[in-house]
Computed example of a mutant assay.
Amino acid sequence: MIRFIWAEDEVGKIGYQGRLPWHLPADLKHFKELTSNHIIVMGRKTFDSFPGLLPKRKHIILSTNPILQRKYQDNSRVKVFSQIEQLKNWLKDRTGETIDIIGGAEVFKEFKNEVDVLEKTKIHHIFKCDTEMPELKYEDFELVSSESHQADSENKFAYDFLKYKRNS
């Protein structure tokens, strides 16, 4: 199963200068709960935004950077692919596993016709951003769960956790 996991603002923006433009602890916790013990697939800029390897996850990175490839060649928790077709072929052998695509925009674009589940955090605010989520055909999906949360002392903005499944 291929699943997209991301957060976006009111107008579908997802990043600014290679980072999340917001700090929402509840979304970080939600992300951790969703992705623990799964394969997470990302581009190099998304990987670079992490403080290090995320615990209890296998990191799959799409990057042509040879230094990155050499750095992780002997690390069982990291696999680097230089071409999207190599990555897609590798994923074909992962039947029965949950594959979490976590960004960035170009990686989402590559898998938008193959994704089965969308896990979106909608943040009720507009941020200064330079990256937006690729357009998805929501008519091909059914909203199966929705949780609304108000801003609080730890989370400055109201947000919703939305889960969609592709129509069969």
Rank of each mutant, 00 (worst) to 15 (best):
Y159Q: 01
T98P: 11
I101Y: 09
T121E: 00
T121W: 08
V41C: 05
P55C: 10
H59V: 11
S82C: 15
E114G: 03
L136K: 00
K92P: 08
V107W: 02
I39C: 09
Q17V: 00
M1R: 05
G43A: 03
S146F: 15
G18A: 12
E85T: 01
L34M: 10
F141Y: 14
E106G: 04
G104F: 09
E85A: 03
E135W: 00
S146Y: 14
Q17W: 10
L53W: 03
S76F: 12
R94S: 07
N167E: 10
Y164K: 05
N65D: 15
N155C: 02
I84S: 00
K29N: 10
L62Y: 02
G15E: 08
T46E: 04
M42N: 05
E154V: 14
I67M: 07
N155M: 08
F161W: 07
S153R: 12
D152I: 02
L136R: 00
Q69C: 11
K71L: 14
S168L: 15
N89L: 11
D116Y: 09
H30Y: 15
P51R: 12
E110Y: 01
F161G: 04
V78H: 10
Q86V: 01
G52R: 13
I14C: 03
G18L: 08
G96K: 04
T35G: 11
V144Y: 14
F50V: 11
I99C: 06
R3A: 15
E142L: 14
L20S: 08
D152V: 05
V144F: 12
I39G: 06
G15S: 08
I61M: 02
D100E: 11
V115L: 07
P134R: 04
A7Q: 06
F47V: 07
L62W: 05
S148V: 09
W6T: 05
K165F: 12
G15L: 02
H59C: 11
I40H: 03
L162V: 09
M42E: 01
F31M: 09
S153Y: 13
K120D: 04
Q73P: 04
M1I: 00
A158R: 08
N65V: 14
I5L: 15
E33A: 09
F108V: 06
F31W: 01
G103A: 12
P25I: 09
E97Y: 14
L53N: 03
E8R: 13
D100S: 14
E97W: 13
Q73M: 09
H149I: 13
E154T: 15
G12F: 09
V115M: 04
M133Y: 12
M42Y: 00
P51D: 10
T64C: 08
K71G: 04
N113I: 11
H125S: 06
Y72Q: 00
L87W: 03
P21N: 03
I60K: 02
R44Y: 01
E85R: 01
S168T: 15
S36K: 02
